[in-house]
């Protein structure tokens, strides 16, 4: 278990930033999804031991964050959302210091600094002062800083912020590469494609609470009653017959259609209707929800529940 929290509450004065989060993550790449202000960054900082919980508890890598915060921070990496660097130092000096502060001996820290800067694609610029870097380079620098001590788990808070499309794709590829090397990743983002590109699991948050969680495959799996259908020929009679039977049919511009059957019906009804209209089925597959739909539906359900 890389992360487990139990009724975790974080308050800032009268504002409740996290309201009783209970979470268990086995490992792998986990996406934290949510609109701005959902509490994603607060949750990460609580897991880093930077916020003292008002109630509840959290464990990271099987260590209690409240009592063994330093040991936790020795074993994890963190890429902060906002711009952050050590002033007046070039990237090698900065990462050497950060590596040493994470517990590495000087020579090993210096060696790692070079390695992770090359890994992050900053090899040529490693002797430049970090304040002269572009936004994309600073994001890469922060990734290198999070990796310099070879953590077992890395928290990435909006890692593609301010990056151009090519840079963003490269950053996501670096994250995928980390997974291939066995490093657990928690990626916080409000960009669904970023999470979809890197993560196997997702936790959807809003207003300091978890709305839904699970593997992306499970969450986007078909509900069982929605189907995507495409036919050869004029589909008008097919649609009419299904509507007459009380089925929900939505046609799309690409001549495919979405057919929703009742719980007790089977796909045989679709085959039968098509045959009776003299049409041949070109496509019939269970409808798959996109992560965006999962996300929006979770927000919508939460909104209705609160209303």
């Amino acid at each position: 278990m890389i992360i487990s929290t139990l009724d975790l509450v974080v308050r800032f004065g009268s504002v409740q930033a996290l309201g009783g989060i209970t979470l268990s993550l086995e490992g792998g790449a986990v996406g934290l999804l949510g609109p701005n202000g959902a509490g994603k960054s607060t949750l990460i900082r609580a897991l880093l031991g930077l916020h003292v919980p008002s109630a509840g508890s959290c464990r990271v890598l099987d260590l209690d964050v409240a009592t063994r915060g330093r040991e936790v921070r020795r074993r994890i990496g963190y890429l902060p959302e906002r711009d952050a660097y050590l002033p007046d130092r070039n990237a090698v000096l900065a990462l050497t210091l950060l590596g040493e502060l994470s517990g590495l001996p000087f020579l090993e820290a210096r060696r790692r600094a070079h390695e992770v800067l090359f890994f992050a694609g900053l090899g040529e610029a490693r002797y430049r002062k970090v304040q002269t870097y572009s936004t994309g380079m600073r994001q890469r620098f922060k990734l290198a800083a999070a990796l310099v001590h070879d953590p077992a788990l890395i928290f990435l808070d909006e890692p593609t912020n301010g990056m151009d499309p090519a840079g963003r794709e490269e950053m996501l590829e670096l994250v995928r590469d980390l997974r291939r090397h066995g490093i657990h990743v928690v990626l916080s983002s409000h960009l669904l494609p970023d999470v979809e590109a890197c993560c196997e699991h997702v936790v959807v948050m809003s207003e300091g609470r978890i709305l839904t969680q699970g593997s992306i495959a499970d969450l986007t799996r078909a509900s069982g009653q929605g189907f995507v259908v495409a036919l050869d020929g004029d589909a008008e009679p097919f649609v009419s017959r299904l509507v007459d039977r009380g089925r929900e049919v939505t046609t799309h511009e690409d001549r495919s259609m979405r057919v929703v059957l009742p719980v007790d019906a089977t796909t045989f009804e679709i085959f039968e209707t098509a045959a009776s209209c003299g049409l041949r089925l070109r496509r019939l597959e269970p409808e798959k929800r996109t992560l965006e739909e999962v996300f929006l539906r979770a927000l919508e359900e939460d909104h209705h529940a609160r209303a």
Binding site: L97, P105, R112, E115, F119, G121, E173, D177, H181, G182
Partner: peptide, 24 residues
């Protein structure tokens, strides 16, 4: 290539010899 060098895990982790405040 996305990066110029692959990632390397640390096999044997040494211990920092200096207290953190002296390192800083």
């Amino acid at each position: 290539p996305v990066h110029e060098q692959g990632y390397r895990r640390i096999d044997e982790r040494g211990q920092a010899r200096m207290p953190a405040f002296l390192t800083m």
